[in-house]
C-alpha cells in the first residue's frame, strides 16, 4: 500500500497528488511514468511522473479525471492509501546536448511537460514553453512554467485567457520569423502532437513526442501499447512501455495511434458514468 501524502486540485478536472514511494522517487527522471491501481479490484493505469521529492520519498502525479479509475483516485484523500504503485517505467527524456528547446504542452499534457522543462532549465538550456488549454478554467501550472522558462506563451482555444488559438499558432510564427530550436518536445493530445510535428516539418527541426497509449503491465510483456513507426521506408512495431514513451514525431503513425486509443471508448464511458453514480451514493 502506498500513502497519499499530498493532494491539490489544480482545476476542476485535474488533480495533483504526491504518493509515498521512496524506491520510485529515488530513480524517476523526467519523461518516465508509473503504473498504479487504486484498490484491490482496480485496473492498472499509467501516469507520467510530474516530479519527485527524494527527501520525502514522494512521487508527484497529475491526472485528469476522465474515467472510472481516475474518478476513484480523485476520491481518495490525503493520508489514505492506494493499492499499487510501480515504476519508474519507460526511457527518460533525452536532454543532453540541447542548447535551445521549445516545449509545447497541451491540457493535462502540460503536467508531463513541466518536469521536462525544469530539467532543461536546470542544465542551462534556453527554454521556450508554449502551453495551451481549452479555456481559462482548465489552465494549470502557469507559475511553474514561468519559473523554468526563458519565454512562456499561454494559449486558450476560446480566447478566455491569454492568447486566443491553439499552440501551433505561436510555434508557426516563431519558425516563420526565422527562429530555430535544437529540439521541439511536444506532450498532449495525439491530434495536437501530430499538428505540432507537421508545423515543424518544413523547418527540419527534430520533434520528440510523448505517447500515452493503452497499457497493462508497462514492463514489456503484454504488447498492448504497440505503435507503428516509419523507419527507412518500413513500418516497424515499437512498444511505448520499453522503447518509449518518447518517440521521433516524424516517424509515428498518429492516425493509427488515435484509432487504437479509441478501442474501449464505449466501455470506458459507461464505466465512468457508473463510478460517478456509485460515488454520489457514497457521499
Amino acid at each position: 500500500m502506498y500513502r497519499i501524502i499530498g493532494k491539490r486540485n489544480l482545476n476542476p478536472t485535474v488533480t495533483q497528488m504526491e504518493i509515498e514511494a521512496p524506491l520510485v522517487a529515488n530513480k524517476a527522471l523526467p519523461g518516465q511514468f508509473i503504473i498504479l491501481r487504486v484498490d484491490e479490484a482496480g485496473e492498472r493505469i499509467p501516469l507520467t511522473v510530474a516530479g519527485v521529492d527524494k527527501a520525502r520519498g514522494a512521487v508527484k502525479i497529475i491526472f485528469q479525471i476522465v474515467g472510472a479509475t481516475t474518478e476513484l483516485l480523485n476520491h481518495k484523500k490525503e493520508g489514505e492509501y492506494i493499492q499499487d504503485f510501480v515504476g519508474p517505467l519507460g526511457v527518460p527524456t533525452h536532454t543532453e546536448g540541447v542548447k535551445k528547446v521549445c516545449i509545447v504542452g497541451g491540457g493535462v499534457g502540460c503536467a508531463i511537460a513541466m518536469p521536462v522543462a525544469q530539467a532543461f532549465h536546470a542544465q542551462g538550456t534556453e527554454v521556450t514553453s508554449i502551453i495551451g488549454f481549452r479555456n481559462k478554467d482548465l489552465l494549470i501550472l502557469e507559475d511553474e512554467f514561468k519559473a523554468c522558462s526563458d519565454r512562456l506563451i499561454v494559449m486558450t482555444d476560446d480566447g478566455s485567457y491569454a492568447r486566443h488559438g491553439n499552440v501551433t499558432v505561436p510555434l508557426k510564427e516563431m519558425l516563420e520569423a526565422g527562429e530555430t530550436f535544437d529540439l521541439i518536445i511536444t506532450i498532449g493530445p495525439l491530434i495536437m502532437m501530430k499538428f505540432v510535428t507537421l508545423t515543424a516539418k518544413p523547418y527540419g527541426i527534430p520533434v520528440t513526442v510523448s505517447m500515452n497509449p493503452i497499457m497493462i503491465d508497462g514492463t514489456g510483456m503484454c504488447g498492448g501499447c504497440r505503435l507503428t513507426l516509419y523507419e527507412d521506408g518500413k513500418r516497424v512495431t515499437k512498444f511505448a512501455c520499453v522503447d518509449g514513451p518518447d518517440f521521433d514525431g516524424y516517424k509515428v503513425d498518429f492516425d493509427e495511434a488515435m484509432s487504437r486509443g479509441r478501442m474501449y471508448f464505449d466501455f470506458e464511458r459507461r464505466a465512468h458514468e457508473k463510478t460517478c453514480n456509485l460515488l454520489k451514493g457514497a457521499n
Binding site: I216, M221, C222, R226, F239, R260, R262
Partner: peptide
Amino acid sequence: GAGLPNFMNIPGEALKGVYSANEFLT
C-alpha cells in the same frame, strides 16, 4: 520470464481487435 510478444508483421496487426496472447490472457 518471457518478454515482448511477437507479431507476424503482416498488414492490419494494429487494427482494433488484434491482441497478443499475452495481452488477451493478462
